[in-house]
Simulated assay, not measured.
Amino acid sequence: MTPPGGPPEPNGTARTLIVTNDLPPRPGGIQAFVHGLAMHRPPGSVVVYAPRWPGCEAFDGRQPYQVVRHPGALMLPLPAVARRAARLVRLHGIETVVFGAAAPLGLLAPTLRAAGARRVVMLTHGHEASWARLPGPRQVLARIGAHADVVTYLGEYTRGRLERVIDPGKLARLTPGVDTTVFRPGAGGAEVRKRLGLSGRPVAVCVSRLVPRKGQDVLVRAWPRVLRAVPDAVLLLVGGGPGRRTLERSAARLGGSVRFTGPVPWTALPAHYDAGDVFAMPCRTRLGGIDVEGLGIVYLEASATGLPVIAGSSGGAPDAVRHGETGLLVDGTSVEQVAAALVELLSDQGRARAMGDRGRAWTTREWSWPLVAGRFAELLAP
């Protein structure tokens, strides 16, 4: 842990404090989003206050921003967290506080304003859109939003949910960015294929946490249909999660045509995307809309790697895919639709390659980190 302290930057760059539960080395899309925002600010202008996570010491030491770790693995809007965050505001002359996720840590905003912060920016993701649907959480979210200067949203789906609860004048679009120099064709997929014995075989890859919303169970159920049309195809499931044992039991009858890698370090993810011919994550909305995909950065990372994508038409996922151009949108609950999309793209290499090329061009043009960093800088300014 880097100890707190130090004066504001001599070049006059106002210091920003990011308060977040989501930061690498903990894996996940929100974690990568928050890290990317901090990385693209001027060196030394950002302090991040985040929970401890295995491997955080090595990660923190490599960053151009300062990280202060909370003693535990989770931060809640409780007095101890409020005191530590307020101390950081005072020590560093913080002018702007960014909450990596508005709910629930945004409840700390009044305390941090009292400590000296002049501006509060709150990021939202899929779970805030879910909170907006439920009476109790909706009231808390309204309270959180009342103390913000800016509340960001990922796309039209999340905006539509949030504007029912938060002043629409505070809402501003801010999406994750994609590093197209890291996620790119030729990022190491050949080595992954060789190591796993997949060279020369058609591969559908899914990179995500193994939970029901992401749809790996539907991929496994659809796989026998895929094998009838593409007998040597392989489904590569990259990631860990509570659903792994159930998925492995379901896939056991399919022999070696379904492979599980388990958790993969963030630095190895580009190579695992690049090991695929098609990316598929047929996400679906669950629990009456409470469990929903906010956007799906994995679709954009796959597109940047030159893969066509198959996405479930759930929540904000359609914002990350151009149906028929960069990939296909399917009903994530339909085994038939998922299987048909997989067969279509695994069988037609020319169409798949053309979609992948268009996807890479689109992410480079509209989702690159320099563009996102510019939008973020505008939101931080008073």
Rank of each mutant, 00 (worst) to 15 (best):
P270D: 08
D274N: 05
P265V: 09
L300D: 02
G296H: 04
A280V: 07
T305L: 10
G296E: 04
A268P: 02
V292Y: 03
I297Q: 13
A304G: 10
A311Y: 10
E301G: 05
G306V: 08
V298P: 01
H272E: 04
G312R: 00
G288C: 15
G288K: 15
D274S: 08
P265N: 11
D291V: 15
T267C: 03
R284F: 10
G276F: 04
V298H: 03
G288E: 09
F260C: 11
T261N: 14
L300N: 04
E301A: 06
T285P: 06
V298K: 01
A304H: 02
D291P: 06
L307M: 10
G312A: 08
V292T: 10
S314I: 03
G296A: 04
L300Q: 12
L287N: 07
L295V: 07
D277H: 15
C283D: 01
L269D: 13
P263K: 06
G306W: 02
S303G: 13
G288M: 15
P265D: 07
L287R: 13
V309R: 04
D277K: 05
L287C: 06
S314A: 15
I310K: 00
R284G: 11
L287H: 09
P270N: 09
G289S: 13
P265A: 15
C283N: 14
F260V: 03
G294T: 08
G276W: 02
P282C: 12
W266C: 15
W266H: 15
D291I: 12
V278H: 01
D274Y: 01
D274R: 02
P263F: 11
D274L: 08
R259A: 14
P308H: 09
I310P: 01
V258I: 13
R286G: 11
Y299H: 02
G288Q: 14
A304Y: 00
G294K: 07
D291S: 06
M281G: 00
E301T: 03
P265G: 14
T261D: 14
F279A: 06
P263V: 09
G296N: 05
D277T: 12
Y299K: 05
L307R: 02
H272T: 08
R286W: 13
E293P: 07
L295Y: 13
P265W: 03
D274I: 00
M281T: 00
G296M: 02
T267S: 14
F260E: 11
A311L: 11
G289D: 11
G262N: 06
G289E: 08
S313I: 00
A311H: 10
R259E: 14
D274H: 04
D277I: 09
S313V: 05
I290L: 15
L269T: 14
G294N: 10
V292M: 05
F279V: 01
A271F: 11
A268V: 00
D291Q: 09
P308W: 13
Y299I: 01
L269N: 12
R259L: 15
T285L: 03
S314T: 08
T261K: 05
A275I: 02
S303N: 06
G296R: 01
A275F: 00
P263E: 14
M281I: 00
A311S: 10
E293D: 11
L269E: 12
D291L: 15
I310M: 07
V258M: 11
L307T: 00
V264Y: 04
A275Y: 03
V264T: 12
